[in-house]
Design a protein around this nucleic acid. Structure first.
Lengths: 213, 213, 213, 213
DNA sequence: AATGAATGAGTTTTCATTCAT
DNA sequence: AATGAATGAAAACTCATTCAT
């Protein structure tokens, strides 16, 4: 793991994991409500179920909490994404299914994703590249899927095109949560999925038709 | 004006405008660098060129500064958007031009837009609806354009479809600045514009072809 | 003055001087009682007669208080030393008078001097040379006096001898305050002065006799 | 033993002694570097080679560590002083040797002595008299030596004179370490010893001469 | 209108000490 | 006897806001 470590005074690895889980869980709830800056370390400790002193046995600074939270969210998203995208056969149709699955994940985790985007700026200089790397890995999951699908279906796509489509899928998923105040007034998740899938995959359909001619 | 007013102790309207302009200009620079929360009111006053006491003659709380900044950025974006979208003839081709113009505006104002998205959460409950309204107005500009274009070109689009396309255009423009750390490594603005326009307008092209048959 | 400056947010130089005087006065009282480390910044502010916020308008860190206190004590000691040593005629007899005056100063400022010695270690790396310099200047005042006296009385002393005597005078004065718990039980100030002067000046007397032969 | 006891939970006396030795050894190193107040109990435990929990089995409070350290340093100094001053014959000449030996001890233990002087203030009210007593015992060692010497050489000295000389010897030894930043720039240990011995013993020489006449 | 000194509640962080295992 | 996780009081320092000039 290239994860840059957050120092803990406590030695027991198992315990560190457990306490950090509690901590992240509490912090996420608070960050959802009031954001990182308006949340105090005391509140985090309380939400985690231990004292302020104990909190600082597992982190060095408040910024560490933010990093741990972002890290955890990414891991969470990625894990669920891996499940959502593990399809046996990769046709254009199953690509639609993958997108739908992804959108559903983003719907469920929308608040967590919101935290990441709004507080990312406050991450320390050292944490940022690590977090960005994780994001790229996720986009790559879509790229792999697209490449496979293009191959299976005999559609030729340049790498740049694959990158752009993957990116657009990724962004459109985030938008559902990120701009929910408007999107979720206009569409149901199903409608949104249908609509966006069409646009996202128009390119692929057209290529297929072209080639079929 | 539906703008919910920020109270100023000073009566002279002209002066209030002038001072707030100074204030916003200074604050934007600071927010770009360190975000709203890490910027102090003293720094804002200094960057604006007057004393902390004077600053508080023109606002009531630090949150007012954020609102004023967001408000100003929106006005700025909207004004430039109006110029960018004022096309005499509205063909599908000119729609591409409008998108290109919009993306260029977003490229130039990317840091300001970033501020808006990252600090929006910190806006007071009362300010949020006003700010959201402004955003909807901008999306509507695209909807109008699309509706007009569809009519001119004889393409039939449902309102939901128009809304979705408008929204996608809007979002993709923001993404250019928002996710610049990856997008701007992969593409030039021109490439990005070309690529996204294709996907954004595939739907329209297809309809046209269908109808043309 | 080579004094390395302590930053103050307040601009008004006069006010800064006044507030720092208050601050040092309060801090000295507290340091006398409980030492630097056991004194809190809040206590210092209170003793100075203003709020904790105001205290920090005139210093950057608690260490600054210690520096300011040491600086002030040195200035105080030096000023009084200058008065005490300003003798019109410099005979061996008047040298005794100078020593007596110096010991009296040290008797009066014994607690301040105690602070300096016990808290010197806590001074920041940058402050130390400045403080040491001041001390050397004081020793030099004795050296000048001794050199003059030796010349006037026709006694030849090497620079090393002058340095050693000056230093011993200086140290013995400090000891009166520094080891008061024992010295002041055994001797009155007058007895101590008489006793130490004899030892300190034996060397000079002897030389004079030798030369007189 | 007049030593006021530091409470230990552990019963095994031997073990208590052993652990406290470890503790003091570690603490002295730390106090040398950063002083008592800037050293944490955790650091002390670590330097001693056991856990914080164990540390508290052998002391009640952090202040106990300071007392134990001071106590140990005194014992150390005293022991070496006893060796240094155990001369078979006591002439004025051998007195010079005793002073030289003492100065050498102080040179070797200068950092320990520094700790004692700078942290003495932090000792608890109850510990102070005990520590002062130890110091007086050391001065008395010089007094005994001087008294013996005076007797052997047939020099008559009042008790006050003996006390003053003994005290001066003691202080000058400490000064070598205490004011090393200046003394050790000006003199080598040998020069300093020579110079100070002269001044310290001038009185005795003179008496001898006087009496010899 | 403008200034900037004063305020003190609130924040992060530390660390001596305890106590269950 | 030894451990080290847990505790929370207390510390230094910040900063939005006020108000006398």
């Amino acid at each position: 793991m290239t994860k840059h470590n957050v120092h803990a005074s406590v030695k027991d690895e198992k315990l560190v994991m457990k306490r950090r889980e509690q901590m992240v869980k509490g912090a996420v709830q608070l960050f959802k409500q009031k954001g990182f800056h308006r949340t105090t370390t005391r509140e985090i400790a309380k939400a985690a179920g231990f004292s302020i002193g104990t909190l600082y046995e597992y982190i060095r600074t408040k910024d560490d909490v933010l990093y741990l939270v972002c890290d955890s969210i990414y891991d969470n998203v990625k894990e669920r994404l891996e499940q959502a995208l593990s399809l046996d056969k990769v046709s254009v149709l199953s690509l639609r299914q993958a997108i739908a699955n992804y959108f559903k994940v983003m719907d469920e985790l929308q608040e967590e994703v919101l935290i990441m985007y709004q507080e990312a700026r406050s991450l320390s200089k050292e944490s940022i590249p690590y977090v960005l790397k994780k994001e790229l890995e996720m986009v790559q999951m879509f790229e792999d899927l697209l490449r496979q699908c293009a191959e299976d279906e005999g559609i030729s796509l340049t790498e740049k095109e694959i990158g752009a489509i993957a990116h657009n899928i990724f962004v459109q998923g985030q938008m559902w949560g990120f701009r929910r105040w408007v999107m979720q007034k206009l569409y149901t998740l199903e409608e949104y999925t249908e609509l966006q899938s069409n646009y996202l995959l128009y390119g692929m359909y057209m290529r297929k038709e072209e080639m079929g001619k």
